[in-house]
Design a protein around this nucleic acid. Sequence first.
DNA 1: GTACTTTTTACACGCCTTGAACCAGGAGTG
DNA 2: CACTCCTGGTTCAAGGCGTGTAAAAAGTAC
Lengths: 401, 401
Amino acid sequence: MSIARRGTVLDLRRGNRSALLRALYFNAPSSRQELGIATGLSPASVSNVVNELLEAGLVVEAGAENSDGGRPRVLLQVNGDYAAVVGIDVGETRVRAELFDVTLGAAFGRVDVALDVDRNANAVELVVRAIVTALDELLTDHPSRPLIGIGISVPGIVEQGDLVRVHGQTIGWDGVPLARLLDRAGVKAPVFIDNGASNLGQAESWFGAGRGARHAIVALIGSGVGASIITDGSRYRGMTSSAGEWGHTPVAVGGRRCRCGARGCLEAYVGAAAVLARYKEANPRRRVDLANEEGELEKLVERAKSDAAARSILDDTALYLGAGIAGLINLFNPERIIIGGWAGLVLGAELMDEIRAAAKAHALREAFAQTSIELCMLGDDAVALGAATLPIERLLSGELA
Amino acid sequence: MSIARRGTVLDLRRGNRSALLRALYFNAPSSRQELGIATGLSPASVSNVVNELLEAGLVVEAGAENSDGGRPRVLLQVNGDYAAVVGIDVGETRVRAELFDVTLGAAFGRVDVALDVDRNANAVELVVRAIVTALDELLTDHPSRPLIGIGISVPGIVEQGDLVRVHGQTIGWDGVPLARLLDRAGVKAPVFIDNGASNLGQAESWFGAGRGARHAIVALIGSGVGASIITDGSRYRGMTSSAGEWGHTPVAVGGRRCRCGARGCLEAYVGAAAVLARYKEANPRRRVDLANEEGELEKLVERAKSDAAARSILDDTALYLGAGIAGLINLFNPERIIIGGWAGLVLGAELMDEIRAAAKAHALREAFAQTSIELCMLGDDAVALGAATLPIERLLSGELA
DNA sequence: GTACTTTTTACACGCCTTGAACCAGGAGTG
DNA sequence: CACTCCTGGTTCAAGGCGTGTAAAAAGTAC
């Protein structure tokens, strides 16, 4: 049913170049031989394509490697200095822009621009101006290489398409054509936009706990709950890119009211906001500062070591989270499940065994046995890094440059 | 991260031929012009590829179509007579084999072989012999065209790979290498095996309510519950092909015990067995013949029109089913959800509005608005047809013939 | 310096798609 | 009935691509 729409012999070339570049990007340094094995190309073609990339400056030699008594293998790697990429994290209180090299291994600089939350009369304009300001500052501070593209992480659902639209319940956006607004505001480089959680998931799958897994799911638990789904090595987006809204999977029909309006959503049990709310309900005397979720959650985890009431809240959280994860395992049969997000890291560090046990109890035996459940390796500040993967992804697929 | 592994210019040709054949298969009859538009190929290449296919006999002309005052367009279609395909449905009490033409539009014949369930001492051998018998009978009755391949639907999880293994809890199979057993038993044609529900879903997505949807999920409700997930036009299989085990998604943590051992699985609420069990628990006086689920479920639906107790069971079923569907919508953002399976058809016919309402209540607004929920169009006896799509799929991808 | 091993390049070959020119088949017009 | 117009389909030279083979390059061991 799916129609390939390949075509000319130039597409073939582009495909091979893309495959080789990808292999090198994620397995640097590599020799020409290894690249040949990884891509299935003949040595002649590898040399051919590599020369093209060397000439373009996208790839550089990186020393040599002994071969058992023969000519040494020349090692190759992607040239970080080829260009720069910007990753932008649009948060609720600030816009953060970071400048990376092409390998995303080094960050040259970072700029934070505060968002004046009080007068969010026209929040969209505010964010656009903050992005432009951050970009200007970043690029004048580091007038380095040519800019290959700008990736932006936003909170909310991003409808990819001809006109990229952002729907964000939290920030009150409804179909904002952010890319066009930035274009009008004078942003020159290509702009790529996606959901922040989704981008963080991609960062984790490229550089973190998901490395090398073709089928992985990054579960992101903050105040709310989301997921980033990697199938067959690339992010699954669904029909209009809003796939991965894991937080509102019903896990207790008729259960707790969720902020989305429904009852029994996973988020209503394992999101940080929900965990704290449940704790407060069970212990009305306790004072819980809901404006400081992060601190309170840590306190709760600490308290659980001696306090049975707190412990019981966390046990339930692990139970629901594990059950939710089991659902993912049954449905997707993934290779790896990665728990992240700031609350995910706090909870995971403490409850990993319980979560695994609950997942095992609710998942089918075969599927569970093939899956490992792990913690995120990148911190929660990798959202900008995740955004920066977007232009790089395009570069690797050979559509840019 | 995913590496393309394309390569030579022959792969290019194969890809284009496959794209054209696919376009023609699902949009017959088509003119060369339409095929050019559908595949993006130039008229010259279309002619070139079409001639190859005509010569091979896989495609035939099918009349002409007036063009507004010019040379008439010659219409083309896939040649059903090119070859035959067998689809086999391994049920719990019988093996059914059906012989189709290449378009799967016509069934030439059908053979049922009963399985002697009592002496399932060596059930595997029994099934293998039944398959061989059915094949022999079918092919001697209809010694027609060359056989292109045999597709087999089995109940249970199928581990695709170098050695295809079948795990079936219901029939007590544990890693049975069915393809190899059939090869040893003298079956000559290429054999393709997959889960029956999954195959039924593919049939529905090719010829039924899923036609034309790139992202669809077929929810199959029988005694148990499963799903077949179509992403980007092709079936999603996960790492080892056991994806789609929707029935054991937790929808009520700590809820009813499921036959899989866990608590609160979707299947424990909406599978036919579970619906009847719930009804019996709520109405201990009623006599419910659990050996005749199909009849009893229909009786229950009938009774619900006047009996509040029965009605309440069905209302709950719709609620849980809708909630489960909402989870799928949130997670996959599909274009279409299709409800099938024998129990799905019975329940769907009666409860469609309630199911839609429950799904709407539990799904996110944007995602729900982009999804339609429909009933299966093919009957439950399309499992063999679904099996037959497997060799055809291979044919269309240009790897066979 | 020689023999040997291994990596990398050079080149002819066959295959592919394309665009442009060209043929085929029908309708309209006078 | 001849001529023109129009659209669908085909032919063919041209330009690209990957492969395999042969040759060159670049080391190590003796």
